[in-house]
Design a protein around this nucleic acid. Structure first.
Lengths: 123, 123
DNA sequence: GCTACCTCTGACGTCAATGTCAGGTTTCTA
DNA sequence: TAGAAACCTGACATTGACGTCAGAGGTAGC
C-alpha cells in the first residue's frame, strides 16, 4: 500500500511515517518512481511503534529493541535494557494509578460539594 | 524555605520551580530583597504538579484544576474536564498495561531463546 | 490527455518544559 | 568583613516528534 493508506489505517500522519523511516524504525520498498510501498504487516509495526512511544521510550531505544520484539531474540545487553524499560513502565502505571486516585477524590468531593449548593469558584 | 531547599526536597530543578510560578501553578512570598520564600506545603504542591504533568496534563489544564484539587470544589465545566482527564488517564494505564504484556513476551521469549544457545543479533 | 489528488525531498516552524548563560544582588559562614 | 554560595531577572538554546510549506513529479478516473 502507499503511504496515505497506511496513514489512514493506523491513524498516524504521513509526516510521522516518513519520520519513522528516517529514524530507521519503519522500512519501505520503493516504486520505480520512488514512492514508498508498504507490506500489510507495516500496520502492526506502526502500532507497535506508537505503543512504545506512548510508554515514553525514545526512538533510539525503540530502534534498538525493535528487531528483538519482532524476532523474539535479544542479546544480553538489549535484554537488560528491555528489563529497564519494563520497570519504568511499571512505575509509570503505578504513578498514574495514584494520580487516578487523586482525581477521583477531587471529582467525588467536588460533585458532592457542588450538589449541596456550596458556592464554587469558576474556572 | 528558599527555592534551593524546595528544589532539593522535591527533586525538581530551581529553573522548573520558577517556571511553575510563571505559569501560576506555584505561589511564593517574597523577602524584602525579592527572594522567594515557600511554606512547608509547597513541597506537596510541587509533587502534585509533577504528578499531573506525568499524567500528560498541560500546565494550562493544571492551572485550571489546581484550586479544585486543593479546595475540593469545582464548577461544572471544570468537573467535566476533570472527568475527561480521568478517562484519559485510565486509557493511558490500559495502554501501558498492554505494552507491559508485549515487553514481557519479548523478555520471556528472548531469555529462553538465548539460554538455549540460539545465535542472536547484537544491538 | 486532463484534472484532481497523492507523493516526493528539503527545510524551516512549533510546542512545552526545562537548560544554560550573563550580569548583578543577597545571604551565609568563617 | 571577606568570600563563597545562593538567588534574582531576562533571554536565548535545546529536545523530540512531528506540522507545514514550497516546488516538482507521479497516479488514477473520466
Amino acid at each position: 500500500m502507499r503511504i496515505g493508506e497506511l496513514a489512514e489505517r493506523t491513524g498516524v500522519s504521513v509526516r510521522a511515517l516518513r519520520y519513522y523511516e528516517e529514524q530507521g524504525l519503519l522500512a519501505s520498498e520503493r516504486s520505480q518512481s520512488g514512492q514508498r510501498r508498504y507490506a500489510e504487516n507495516a500496520v502492526d509495526r506502526v502500532r507497535l511503534i506508537q505503543q512504545l512511544y506512548a510508554a515514553g521510550i525514545s526512538s533510539a531505544s525503540i530502534l534498538e529493541m525493535l528487531p528483538c520484539v519482532v524476532t523474539g531474540v535479544a542479546a544480553p545487553e538489549v535484554l537488560a535494557k528491555l528489563r529497564g524499560h519494563r520497570s519504568s513502565v511499571v512505575k509509570q502505571i503505578e504513578e498514574l494509578q495514584e494520580t487516578l486516585l487523586q482525581l477521583d477524590t477531587v471529582i467525588a468531593g467536588a460533585t458532592k460539594t457542588y450538589a449541596t449548593g456550596v458556592p464554587c469558584p469558576p474556572a
